[in-house]
Write a protein that binds this DNA or RNA. Structure first.
Lengths: 340, 340
DNA sequence: TTAAAATATGTAAGCGCTTGCATGCAGGAA
DNA sequence: TTCCTGCATGCAAGCGCTTACATATTTTAA
């Protein structure tokens, strides 16, 4: 039923003494309306405080200028600055961002996808490349424009903007090995439904395999919290295999392990080296500061937004949206020691 | 123009052999439709992969089940977990969250408010209580349901869910003073357009005033980054007033100051005590871990969502939405030393 | 048995906006 | 003058959905 409180096109039209069509044109395509009329209309709009009704417009043009992003967790600083950059880039094109979080859970992600889409999202940003067939089918069936981030891969059918987790992990592991470490352990996120965690483990295993005299004494998976990482370190130490370096698949895990090591009276890196992944704020703050892998978050967010916008706008002569691979860098700080 | 790709109510109705009205009822009020029909409809919906069109619905019921939140910054972990709780609570009521960020800038906030509203947000979460008249007028004129968080106060016309920044700041300052500190300095966020930063300063000043033998040797404002806090510490030290404690109005600032102190060869807390505010992750991670003020973020997010939902739903007999004041707690860790 | 009440479903109007088409009008070319 | 062109504007259909109301069917009561 009519909300008499909120002015609509007709009200503006009446006040300005023109038809609703002109108002609409004035808003969406100002050149199509003559100067004096435009001024009159603008005055009417201002004086009524008119704002176009979102639903009406969405219905008419079948587009919302809204995109959704579903990240595994909002609490995790890992995604924050990437998302911020994503949003800023969208805003430049007058597109609004809807955010959902999946809690690292595929079925929650599916629900969020449906929810954001039924909220009218024109496109989606998703994290990672592995998801259940059900989700994939859904995306395909509804031909949802989407881009994947925080991952990369050659034979993915969706556009991807990110980095190769496996290669990045292999690189840091190679680096650790090059410094003389021969007994490694891993603390990683739960692989289940998390391709990034999974590939990071595989990357480290790759590095180990190409160096036969390197031993991988433990692989511990846990949730991304200090407490869980702390417990994971305990489990590793309980094995009595004496790894000289622990490669963690996230800074949060690395810091959790460091905190625990400190509690146990172990010196990092003298007694044990620890490396992280992501290079979030935390990494610079711990003592010693964390040697880690820097992920180009901002660039990823920005580029992902560009690709998604391309996907949504049947664009004018521009090149089709393409996947882009970004590179990670190893940031050497204080938690990794050379054994040579 | 009709998107033939996307099934609409009519398609479902045709397939199920009922009218569109029944489909609509089946979706929104299943009890109103008989069991066998409901099953038939459900099957049709599933087989077509039908999803209601957001705009159509929004137009018909003049409601989007969407609320917006505008936070000063996404990068700052300060708001992350509160926002997460806010979102989760909304989700329980099938309400989606739109997020905008204002970059601690009133005019950007105003733009975001307009943008979220024109995206159809039914209500808004805003941070802090001070804003320009223009913004206030706008909210009033359009009678936008909204709740303020991260602040509290008696004579605010909007519902507020938060804590009293001034009191909380006074409390930590009193605590510092009780430990024997007589020369204090402040590192705070920029007060301009930021009531939280402002009130936290005032709270500390309150504490100082009631203790005449306490001196406030410096008040430095800066942006919320390690680098800026670091520079602020330098400016304070350059004064040669030798404060024994630096009260920071955010953990980020406190950690930035700590990092700088360490660079300068100053021991925290032996040479100088430092306190934070917020109790974000960072606080536990630095060495020594940070004595700070814990803000009940999750609770604030949850309660704010409840109040906002109340505001939006002309609800059934429930009590009207009320402001709620939450309490902060001082978390004693390692950066504040007793001088007695 | 019949009337009344309850239940299930359909009909159609209308939410606010955009846009193809029609109309009117001014200026220029023939 | 007449015709054409182009611009500014209006008209009205239609986007997909909800819902008051009308209608048809079943149940219940008397």
């Amino acid at each position: 039923m009519r909300d008499t409180n909120r002015p609509n096109l007709e009200d503006v039209a009446a006040l300005a003494g023109v038809s609703t069509a002109s108002i609409s044109r004035c808003i969406n395509n100002p050149k199509k309306v003559a100067e004096p009329t435009r001024l009159r209309i603008q005055k009417a709009i201002d004086s009524l405080g008119y704002m176009p009704h979102f639903g009406g417009r969405a219905l008419a043009i079948n587009r919302t200028n809204t995109v959704g992003a579903i990240i595994p967790s909002m609490e995790n600083a890992v995604f924050a600055s990437g998302l911020q950059a994503f949003q800023e880039t969208l805003n430049d094109s007058k597109v609004t961002l809807l955010v959902g979080s999946s809690n690292y859970n595929a079925s929650q992600e599916y629900d969020q996808i449906r929810s954001l889409l039924s909220q009218g999202a024109d496109g989606l940003l998703l994290i990672g490349k592995d998801r259940p067939k059900k989700t994939l089918d859904f995306l395909e069936k509804h031909s949802v424009p989407h881009v994947l981030a925080w991952c990369f891969g050659k034979n993915i059918s969706s556009p991807v903007v990110g980095f190769d987790n496996q290669k990045a992990a292999q690189k840091i592991a190679d680096h650790v090995i090059a410094l003389g470490h021969r007994k490694l352990a891993i603390i990683a996120g739960l692989r289940e439904g998390n391709d990034r965690a999974n590939e990071r483990i595989i990357g480290i295993q790759d590095a180990q395999k190409t160096n036969p005299n390197v031993e991988l004494v433990a692989i511990e998976e846990c949730k991304y919290s200090f407490e869980e990482a702390s417990a994971a370190l305990d489990r590793i130490l309980a094995l009595n295999k004496n790894p000289t370096a622990i490669i963690c698949s996230s800074d949060v895990l690395a810091v959790g392990a460091m905190l625990r090591a400190k509690e146990l009276g172990l010196s990092v890196p003298n007694d044990i080296s620890i490396t992280g992944f992501d290079d979030i704020n935390l990494a610079q703050v711990v003592t010693p500061s964390l040697t880690t892998v820097r992920v180009p978050q901002q660039e990823m967010g920005r580029k992902a937004a560009e690709v998604l916008l391309d996907l949504i706008n049947p664009n004018l002569g521009k090149t089709a949206a393409q996947s882009v691979e970004l590179m990670t860098t190893i940031i050497n700080r204080g938690t990794l020691v050379s054994l040579q």
